[in-house]
Write a protein that binds this DNA or RNA. Sequence first.
RNA 1: GCGGAUGUGGUGAAAUGGUAGACACGCCAGUUUUAGGUACUGGUGUCGCAAGACGUGUAGGUUCGAUUCCUAUCAUCCGCACCA
Length: 1120
Amino acid sequence: MKRYNPSEIEPKWQQTWTDTQLYKVTEDSSRPKYYMLTEFPYPSGDGLHAGHIREYTVGDVIARHKRMQGHNVLYPMGYDAFGLPTENYAIKHKIAPQVATATNVANFRRQFDQLGLSFDWSREVNTTDPDYYRWTQWLFLQFLKAGLAYQDEIAINWCPKEKTGLANEEVVNGKHERCGTPVEKKFLKQWLFRITDYADRLIDGLKTVDFPDKIANQQINWIGRSEGAEIDFAIKTQTEPTFYQFFEPGKIKPEHPFVERDGILAIVKHWNEDKYLGLRWKQVDWETFITGGIEAGQTPETAALAEIQQETGYINARLVKDLGRMHSQFFHVPKNQNRHGHFKMLYFELQDDKRVTVADEEQSIHEPVWLTRAEIADFKLPSSHRFMWEQLAGRPSDSVRVYTTRPDTLFGVTYLVLAPEHPLIERYIHQSSNAEEVSIYVKAAIGRAELERQEAKEKTGVELKGIKSVHPLTGEELPIWVADYVLAGYGTGAIMAVPAHDERDGEFAAQFDLPIIPVVEPVTGNPLPDEEYRRSIVALVRNPRTNEVLSINWGQQGGNIFIGGGIDEGEDVVETARREVLEETGYINLKLIGQSEKIHHHYIAHSKGGIKRGIDVWGVYFELENDDRDEQKLEADEEGKFTVEWLPSTKVEQLVNDELHKYVYEKFIGQKCYIGYGPLVNSGEFDGLQGDEAKAAIVSRLEQMGVGKTAKKYKLRDWVFSRQHYWGEPIPVIHCPKDGVVPVPDDQLPVTLPPVESYEPTDTGESPLAAMTDWVNVECPQCGGPAKRETDTMPNWAGSNWYYLRYMDPRNNQAFVGEKALDYWQHVDMYLGGMEHTTLHLLYSRFCHQFLYDQGLVPTPEPYAARRGQGIVLAADGRKMSKSIGNVINPSDIVAKYGADTMRLYILFMAPYDETTPWSDERLGGVNRFAYRVWTLVQQLAANTTQTGDPDGTFVTEVDRFVHKTLKKVHDDLHDMRFNTAIATMMELLNNLSTPAINTRIIEPRHADLATRTARTFVLMLAPFAPYIAEELWHELGSDDSVHTAAWPSYDPSLIKDDVVELAVQVNGKLRGTILAAVEASETEIVAAAKDNPNVAKFLTGTIAKTIVIPRRLVNFVVK
RNA sequence: GCGGAUGUGGUGAAAUGGUAGACACGCCAGUUUUAGGUACUGGUGUCGCAAGACGUGUAGGUUCGAUUCCUAUCAUCCGCACCA
């Protein structure tokens, strides 16, 4: 008998399978297709880890099973090789990333082959291969042409230490993962994809695919759809605009003297062209309009005319329009003075081109220039000058647009809040009376790391004083605040604050002492039909010395509640509360602290025979002044039913379960606001409406007025698609000063990465490609003029967006994938991968695919028909595997010691695929024993070659039955991806065939046919799990073809049915014995047999009230 | 805080309304060989001599019968998180 020696058979079969291209597929329309996909790896220097092995082994088992069942199986593999780890490696070791990638890929390939994975290597792809990324770039251009890719200046993650933009995945807990520096936000021009346009489709499409709930929910949650309304609040300015020039040239310098001087600002139009006079200042790099002081005896107009002549030489200007007055503070550069004063804003038109010579002295400070409208819009004018320009242009009246999911609380708005990044702040800050305070806050908030913003316990903010907003329905003026608890990136970046019904607004209002208007009456319990109406109170009494609250304990049924009772005729709320406390507990001296709003409570009074009640309740809050007590005055039905208890605050949450009483407690002690729905109050004509009805009514009123509409919002943001790194696909775009953004023509793709000296990101945060002037400077494909290439590259998700399509037709150089291949393969049938990609790759590639579907480029709306996420393989110590802890497993070591089959069997056997579970070397040894024992058994059976004599029919049936039952179970388990129980079932069969009772007989010559049959079936069943052992044994059993192209054995349904089954016999649900009964036995026979069982009989002492017979399972006697 | 999941022997786990703990690790005993590991056989939820009782995080409920369904609660894990 041959010894099982994996290190001998595994390389042998590996070679054979590779040589014969055993797993190569073509579009074979005679067989059903099956597309089995596992996520391709990032080829790092570390090689395969345990998670890879789990994923690829499971995919391999499914692929092999499908193949044996006659499917044409596509099970491909490739490499997602662009990205930072390789780039960092290149920087550190001065090795080209192309070279490092090739080395790593070779190592991965070696490990794949070791594991016996049945990939079709003729379809291998690599995202860094120019023949591949040519099509990644082509796809980018499809997005661009469809208007789904666009450029915008947005805040990205920025590492201030390394002066580089960062990918989201490089930011861990608000810090740069490489250097630990807290990440800031920085505005940079970025490429973005409009994934938000597909938000609804990405949610709705989930209904059409087979994804686990966990994954579907996580995606839905991530997209975060919410429905509400956008409402406009008009802006009203109250003060003269004041400009404190903090952000820009002219900033106050404290070391210089402060001088008050009034003056003028003037815009002067050209005599016949649409151009305006400006001054280019020579000492500093900025332009302004005409500006100057007012001397004694001058009017603003004469002063302005004098300035125009003095500074530009033009004489004949005519005053056309008075633009009002402003107040400004600035640093006057030529005089080295800080100045402040009132400025008159005037608009002149030149009558002709007559001018006088400008004095040299003036010329040395600034020179006159003509500015076009476009230039004015583009130049960084000081904000005061820009303001004047806008005044001239006719400023549209502004409003703040807010987004809310609770339009029903509109009447509870007491202020608005803008996110610090909100554009209206820059626009109005100069007209607010506390501009400096606001600007300091805004600057600090924007610069503050996101982490800090999240962790800040106290809310911060500042009022934009002098600027008011107007409530669209009441006309009331509301203050506008700037606070970083409002996020710029969500909704409109501005909110209407309803402190009475929103926790965050409530907290903010409490901190800054802002008014709170309740507009929703709380409702507890569920409304019931035919309720009896009552008015009552709940009294909360706190002892300030012990910090305990007074409760009454109704025992098991009622639990603890506070003091409650009905309001009598003519009694007020507080009187009632005092009376009830006295009657039920005897306490006399109570100090009134507070009274709640009206609460609507619905309940069933079980103590009063199940009466349904709808009550109006007022909570009343007292502090106990002293322990003086009278006798309790209980009603007859209360006597002895409850005890009075003082509860410490820690116990209240646990013991008080009644919804109403809980609410009253949280209202007074927890100071929580009511965020639920209920009838509106203080809301004018909308009083009494509630919930959706109230929302609809208010929104429709706003719509009539043209100041509001329903709106849907998503947490999902547009996808930032730029990276300032070398090792990625160049974005195939050319920037032309004349034609703007020009796509690289298809016939010039791919735009390949040029060789560079240094892969380091540059100081400016530009990609290192920006320094490659030969590469950057190109001709514009449209006008032929000088133009520049885009130097940003794509994120590493770009290549994986569509790789599953390329596998269908990987060598096509006419199209990203050919139509014939698409027609045949359609979409992925089963996609395995890590849970960590749920809201990244999996979402991105669905988006990409839906877009391609809309373009008519793919035949199906969704890329993946089914998805399964895998659980994490933890280290043996229960922690995550990590190189730094040193608890990782090395697959090559395990393969060397036990063989690949054992590795595969163990990783499948340890737990269900989606379960996170620790690695265990001991259990690995156990599975290795199974491999040995299978080997031994099959060799033993194979040795029984020649059938002589008559077999024992009963014995043969017994063995066949066991084999076929196992076969069915293994087949079903494979279908349900329950590999652990499939292997357990095969172990059971092995154990069974190894027992002396069966083993000694099956090796008899008269059972040679049975032995061969059993061995062959066992080997076929094992083939998807342990391909090497199965292949070797299959050949031992006399076959010349591969076991992996053999047909999967089907089970014989007649053999999996038993003639006789064991039934459990229960008495009152407790197991008392078992009986054997024929399958066809009648119920009467079964019951009789069950009664006969002596173990059962002794419990059948009383009357048998009921007998339950479940065929083939059990009998249960109910005895009284 | 929101969303999702999980909770069963010493351990990984099985059973999805019908004999709880399949299969495997570990442990105990034995057999063979041996210095030992390996291999093989048997045992192994807890208490109890036994009959039997108890037992699937905790407390209730539905049911003839609940690990499985319902309600509450606790714990752990994962994802998101000032999303208005």
